[in-house]
Simulated scan of single mutants.
Amino acid sequence: MKKIGFSGTLDPITNGHMWVINEARSLADEVVVFLSENPAKKPKFTAEERKSIIALSCAEQGWDNVSVVIVRGDYTARAAKKQGVHCLIRGIRTTADFDYENLIQQTNVDVLQGAKTVFVMPPRDLGSVSSSFVKALEGPIGWNWIMKKFVPGPAYHAWVLSWLRREWETLWDYEHRDATAIAHADDWFARLTGETAYGGAARHYHNLDHLVHGLCEIRVWAANTRPDAADVDIIKQAFWFHDAEYGHNRDAGAPTNEEASAQLWLGSHLGQEMSDAAELIRATDHFQEASITHRLKDILLCVDLAILGQDDEVYHNYARAIRQEYLHLPDDEYRRQRSGALAHLSRKAEAGQLFRDAYFADQYNERAIANMQREIAGL
């Protein structure tokens, strides 16, 4: 077969969709993804954004025989046939899928005189993966870690950026800001999520995942404890910037990562009162935290360390990412330094001093001890 088509809204494209596309590649020389632009579905991403995400996802796999076409104002099966594609491929996960797809197949051929359809059945581990399923994951603590398992990298990156964008716009009240203030905030969002900060390729842990996780922790803590809204904003401001400047080999006499991040925040001129969040950023220096006082320090430190108390899979991914960030250290040296750091944190947790806020201690202290001790044993 020369060409075969795959159609859908693909908002976002999932690993299930990617499996079907790969099956299509085994059946034809060329695969054309027909992307529906259906405003009634109110997609998260525009058609052009989805086209780019699909193309990047296929390129990441080295699939150079896949193209993407946006279908506007036509039935996909009819549009496909017009472009010389006489067969479409669809994945069938359940009997309900079959009943629905069979009806669409009959309509495509008998009513629209469009392309025929062949059906394939995905493996069991992808049987429940759909765009709707992935969308439903968003929100609770850890949603990003879970979503990452079900979508290709470019789709995940686009989704996380979209989520962070909403958080950023809410923090800076875009709805009531003028165009100049919004443009200024936009520039800083691009800077913080870009290559020079959390979006950097060398950021294996202190990256966009870390940013999403921490902001979720802040949101859930605030929902459960009802603190002053102004304090919540200060914590969020500090968290956005606290690891913006991050490096292992700073020159002698250079400011610490925390001080450099605080200075970056002060130079952003995003808020009216900048010093409060700057001092809070400085308090995330775990080597000097005892000498820095701030009424919100315990909360931000708890948010920063909450990753230690996550479930086994998330903690394993975190530990692996930390090793990647310290690849410049030989194995023996890394084991020595990492074991020492974990032993120190574990002792603090056992003494009830790691999570100094009761809410976080109740949530994470016991599991954090178990996680750290297990990692030490494995080093």
Rank of each mutant, 00 (worst) to 15 (best):
S36L: 12
L171W: 02
R250S: 05
Q237V: 03
N102R: 04
I21D: 09
S52F: 09
Y205F: 14
H328Y: 15
D362R: 15
S26T: 12
W19K: 09
G153P: 04
R295G: 01
P122E: 11
A183S: 11
T225V: 09
I104H: 07
A179W: 05
C216G: 04
L192C: 01
T9Q: 01
H328D: 14
Q288V: 10
R282V: 12
A377C: 02
K41H: 02
E101A: 03
A158V: 09
A181I: 00
Y359W: 15
G8A: 14
E169T: 10
E350Q: 14
A361Y: 02
L345E: 05
A28N: 13
Y364F: 15
V69Y: 05
D11N: 02
T196H: 00
A244F: 10
R90Q: 03
K148D: 10
A358P: 08
T107P: 01
Y246L: 12
P154S: 06
A368P: 02
W221F: 08
L296Q: 02
N317D: 09
N249F: 01
K135H: 15
C216Q: 11
L305P: 01
E273K: 12
D332I: 14
N15G: 07
N224G: 09
V118Y: 14
H210N: 00
D125F: 10
T196Y: 01
H344V: 13
H210L: 03
K41P: 03
M18Y: 06
G200R: 04
R78L: 14
A79P: 10
R72T: 07
V109G: 04
V120K: 08
P122L: 00
P140K: 07
Q272A: 14
A201F: 11
G214H: 03
R50N: 08
W168C: 05
H86L: 14
